[in-house]
Design a protein around this nucleic acid. Structure first.
Lengths: 207, 207
DNA sequence: TAGATTGTTAATCGATTAACAATC
DNA sequence: TAGATTGTTAATCGATTAACAATC
């Protein structure tokens, strides 16, 4: 029986995880919710509340064991699964993601690149060969891909999503600026850059 | 006197805007909250509530004028300002953003690229010359840059943010995977890719 | 022991959903 | 007119903040 963790909490866990990785490198053994909050600009009450959602591992009067807490959060986020990614659409953004180094420290690796443009099929990006997206199902099975990353134009995104699901991916990370529909069993996260940029514009326009 | 609009509402406005752009191209004159909601997978009540925050421009029994509503939302988001962006850190992600076509339709344009790597200074990305980041203040004034985009490694992000603020930018869009501090008068939006990816991992790990 | 810090309950705040009168 | 659809008020839901007992 899984406890339901709110999306707001889930979205803060990666921040805790990253900070714990950093303080672990600084050889800090124990950290308080106060110190963690100071580093992330989050209130200590919020942090304790978040952590309390999935158990007790702090020590009253002391704080949290850095190593233990980091591993616990990593497990909750499922980072130990070493998820394997396929990027569909090797344009500028797809290439940038194929080269993105920060994935590795979170336990993700890019194992396949797919594109329909014959001119780039066969060439490599960051040591990974670009395959024909017509061979998607075959490649995804062969490379044991878990997550499909969509970096094609908006007009093609829904079609690619359906192909990815049919090919057997377990989750989709969508960068195309459009909403896509997938079966409810397939987790989907939209990474919509225009939202953040528009919100920035809004705040810059006030007074 | 400005009405305060919640962040949740602000984050939905770009979605409405984009959909209205699309239906306008389809020559649709009028749209109901029901139809807009259907396209975005948002409840019509939520949409009416959001829009009611800043006035009444629907017609009861009819719906909303597509063109009028699109312009109104664009104005609220401040998209008419034609903000000018400078990208600091022309690595893979910075280059991808310099080439990102979806900015233009929202009224943003990349006018400067800055990097400290002497090997790439002087070369061009998407027709924009890369300048030495030591000349930041000069370039930002000369090119009337409004928004600084941070695509440097996490360890350099805070320093770059401070330089950008000193150079006079009005807002910061941060892609470095770290929290940065800026004066409260400078709007800041963090675009943290590891949050979305970790959340995806979490949901994929459930049952 | 005294000081520090967690975990948890209660209070507050804010956002979403439901309902419906107004009106085109 | 009857049907459709907005704008707004009330009800509900969920998340954050405050307070504090437990305890290291």
């Amino acid at each position: 029986m899984k406890k339901i963790i709110s999306q707001a909490t889930i979205d803060r866990l990666p921040l805790y995880f990253r900070t714990l990785q950093l303080v672990e490198e600084e050889d800090m053994q124990i950290i308080s919710s106060d110190e963690l909050g100071r580093r992330l600009d989050i209130t200590p009450e919020q942090i304790r509340k978040d952590l309390a959602t999935f158990g007790q591992f702090g020590r009253k009067g002391i704080g949290y064991d850095v190593h233990e807490l980091k591993n616990k959060i990593g497990n909750i986020l499922g980072l130990h699964n070493n998820w394997r990614l396929a990027i569909v659409g090797v344009g500028h953004l797809g290439s940038a993601l194929a080269n993105y180094v920060n994935f590795a420290s979170l336990g993700f690796s890019v194992v396949a690149l797919l594109d329909k443009n014959k001119k780039i099929i066969g060439s490599e990006v960051n040591g990974i060969e670009i395959s024909d997206s017509e061979r998607m199902k075959e490649i995804i099975e062969e490379k044991s891909v878990d997550i499909g990353v969509i970096t094609v134009p908006a007009s093609e995104a829904q079609g690619v999503a359906e192909q990815l699901v049919a090919a057997g991916v377990k989750g989709i990370w969508n960068f195309a600026p459009t909403r896509i529909s997938v079966p409810p069993t397939i987790p989907l996260v939209n990474e919509d850059l225009s939202i953040g940029l528009s919100a920035l514009s809004y705040h810059m326009s006030q007074d």
